[in-house]
Design a binder for these strands. Structure first.
Lengths: 215, 215
DNA sequence: TTGCTTGTTATTCATTTGGATAATTGGACA
DNA sequence: TGTCCAATTATCCAAATGAATAACAAGCAA
């Protein structure tokens, strides 16, 4: 009689395990939508057994919500981080920000699937809706700050409208570029985005395209 | 001994039943995302029993795909239909088109949830991805046609870029307005959208705002 | 009125799902 | 090296899910 062998395992730090579970969740959702992200599939991809999920998260929904927060932070971080290395010239900073938002890894089919999958959950989960709202408004405020720094005199109302419009261009291009990656040439989204933002603001930003950063 | 009473029913035309099932599906998905749209919930909302779904659709996935096609057709139809009643002046037609895309029922939280829910499924279902691509490109072509009709001389490449940019503005504003209805004043999206599209095209479209249509 | 077709309901089934609980063992610490 | 806490696995469970099949009856046709 063979004794049934128990699966060997390693103990890990709490933070490491949480990150692994979140990463597994995001990987699965990006791969096939929320429906394939079952507790068992997540556990398997994270290299643990299903029961462990409830050791680190109150429920599956709690893990999902944590994953959403994680991905939204990652996305905005990518666009904002570029400002640290950006020059001080306001136009160049704006161009760098727009460009960073319109190329990988921000523009990415998997990122869109993640976004869509979580957006759908905002109907059931008020906390996830709040996460969405604060992420969106935070990004728009960032953009409005860049616009306000331009050498122009704008009223508060004008600033708000321009920020909304520029944000919309970025969001729309992000959406379409992520959903249909093959429909656009490399760098095309950045060029169109910078040009359009410039037109909305009444500036010729294309001169600053060299601050666009790497592809 | 009480004979178990069988639920009474009416026979309906095939088309009517299919429409009812699709409507029930959309209503559920919009209400709480794809996860609450189970065969039993759909059947209940449509006023039939679960088994009937498979009498009209090969599988649940087939019903989902049909529902997606239905909602996408409905959304683009709304924007395009306005052109039939629109004047012949190219600028006015463009404004009417943009405005129709940026107010209810196109801008609508439920519509966004539907869109997001189905977008996520495009990862598993190639047919649904194709539905998305043809809808997006169809809408953009429509827009490009309106831009080409303007009294300007544009190269094909310019036309393409402008159509992409204008489409992005519309998509972005639709997205944000649908996701956070309370973040924008009534008519604000239309005003911002028309202004931004005008800026991108180098036109002053705000004079044509009276062709914006009703709210 | 009487069949008959088939739209519709009822029942059943095998899986899957999220969660609860019990059993085990890794590894830090003495 | 031995002890012991808790991280982890293993097992179980009730509910839900999509689908298949059987039974029934609505309503048209003759």
């Amino acid at each position: 009689m063979l004794t049934p062998e128990r699966r060997p395992y390693r103990r890990e730090a709490e933070d490491k395990r949480r990150q692994a579970l979140i990463a597994a969740t995001l990987s699965l959702v990006a791969e096939g939508g929320a429906r394939i992200a079952t507790v068992r599939a997540i556990a398997e991809r994270a290299g643990v057994t299903a029961g462990l999920i409830r050791h680190y998260f109150q429920s599956k929904d709690s893990l999902i919500a944590a994953s959403y927060r994680h991905v939204m932070e990652r996305m905005t971080h990518e666009s904002v981080a570029v400002l640290k290395a950006a020059p001080h010239d306001p136009q160049a900073r704006l161009v760098a920000f727009v460009a960073a938002s319109l190329r990988p890894p921000v523009v990415d089919r998997d990122a869109l699937i993640l976004w869509a999958s979580f957006m759908q959950e905002t109907k059931r989960d008020a906390a996830m809706l709040a996460t969405h709202a604060s992420t969106y408004l935070g990004f728009r405020d960032q953009l409005q700050g860049l616009i306000a720094a331009l050498p122009q005199d704008r009223s508060a109302a004008e600033l708000r409208q321009m920020a909304i419009a520029c944000n919309a261009v970025i969001d729309g291009l992000w959406l379409e570029g992520s959903a249909l990656p093959d429909a656009f040439a490399k760098g095309e989204l950045v060029e169109i985005g910078v040009t359009a933002v410039g037109a909305i603001l009444g500036l010729k930003l294309t001169n600053y395209m060299l601050f666009t950063g790497p592809f």
